[in-house]
Structures are given as structure tokens and as C-alpha cells.
Simulated assay, not measured.
Amino acid sequence: MPGAISPALAQAAGAAPALLDVSLRINGTEHRLSLDPRTTLLDALREHLHLTGSKKGCGLGQCGACTVLMDGMRVKACLSLAALAQGREIKTIEGLAQGDELHPLQASFIERDAFQCGYCTSGQIMAGVACISEGHAGSPQDIREWMSGNLCRCGAYDHIVAAIQDAAAVSSSTQGG
């Protein structure tokens, strides 16, 4: 075809790649999206699904404000491609509460005043949920070590650690341990 440009040449010339059909399971609901293959999970959540609880902090995976759970494991959504999350179970802060009942860690954050500006809070809570489920909330030192990938510019770390300890105690008492 005269005048046609190959896809490789178009991409090299700066044209956007073809959209990719992606199916993401977020907070128990299947979402079908057509995305640029370079779209991060964070951008898919915030810009395409309007789930803005996960924050874009550094965009480099260093601050943890974008932390979500993928198959129960903590993940920095700014470093994860949305297309690679297909077939995985993603949980964001919006899916943590059960109806009007807050997750124990959300309630502990309120009780312990574990946030100030709130920008890091969703990432802290999601990482804290993983910290507890992974069995790393046995001591304040363990919590600090396992939460070290989540930064709080306000310095509410003592309150965050206390909230995680409280929620871990609730979790262990409800699990019979």
C-alpha cells in the first residue's frame, strides 16, 4: 500500500502504540479497558477507573503512596504495568472496607491519629495490611523494617506503627491466635 507506514516505523517516529485490551479485576469487579501498553497500574486505576485513593507520589517506587495489593502481596502500582496485572486480583484502599465497616487497620489509623496530611495514608494502610498478613507485625522493630518502603513526609511513624500493632492484635484475636 503506497504511503503506508509500518507499525515499527510509526512507533520509532513517536506515534503511540496500538491500544491493548486489558481486563483487570479490581476490588472484586472485572473492568475491561483499552490501554496504551505502557500504562502503569496506577494510571489505569486513577485515570481510567477513577479510583484515586492510591496516590502518585514519586513515580519511582520509592515513596509507597501508590501501594496496592496484588494477589495479597504489596505492589508499587507506579512500577507495575496494567497489562501485566491481567488475571490478578487487585485490591485498593477503596475495596478494603466491608460496606460501612472499616477494615481494622483503617479504624486503628483513625483511633491512633496515624495520619496528618493524609497523602501517604492509603499506601501506608495497604502496606500495613500486607505487613500483618505476612506475619511481620510482631514487634515495633519488625513493623518499622517491613514498612520501610512507605514514606510519611509528616513523620507520623510512631502512630502508624501503633495502629498496625493494634490491628494485628485484632486480627490475631479474630483468628483464634
Rank of each mutant, 00 (worst) to 15 (best):
A82E: 08
A77R: 05
E94T: 02
E101G: 01
Y119P: 12
C117T: 08
C117I: 09
S139D: 03
Q98A: 12
A65E: 13
H50C: 08
L105M: 08
Q124Y: 03
C152D: 11
G14P: 13
K55N: 05
L33V: 07
C152I: 14
K56S: 11
E94Y: 09
L9I: 13
G128W: 12
C58A: 06
S172M: 09
I26N: 02
C58N: 03
D36Q: 03
A114Q: 08
R88K: 12
V68N: 01
D43M: 12
H159C: 14
H103S: 05
C154T: 09
Q175A: 14
A107F: 07
G176F: 04
A16R: 12
R144L: 05
I110A: 10
S108F: 11
H136F: 14
A13R: 11
E89D: 14
L20S: 13
I26E: 05
K76A: 14
A83K: 01
K56F: 14
A130N: 00
P2D: 15
G72L: 13
G14H: 08
T92S: 09
I160P: 00
R38C: 01
Q141E: 15
G138N: 13
S172G: 01
G138F: 04
Q98D: 15
Y119M: 10
E47G: 10
G87M: 02
C58V: 03
T29I: 14
F109W: 07
I93G: 10
P140T: 08
R25E: 12
K55V: 10
L45R: 01
C66P: 11
A16G: 00
K76I: 03
G155N: 11
M126Q: 00
Q141G: 11
A18E: 15
H48Y: 05
A4W: 14
C117D: 02
I143S: 05
T40K: 04
S133K: 15
G128T: 04
S172R: 15
I5Y: 04
V161D: 05
Q11F: 05
M73S: 09
V68I: 11
R112Y: 15
F115D: 11
A168L: 06
T52G: 07
G72P: 04
D100N: 13
K91Q: 14
Q175I: 01
Y119A: 11
S122Q: 09
P37E: 09
S6V: 02
C131N: 12
A8T: 15
C66G: 06
G149R: 12
A169P: 03
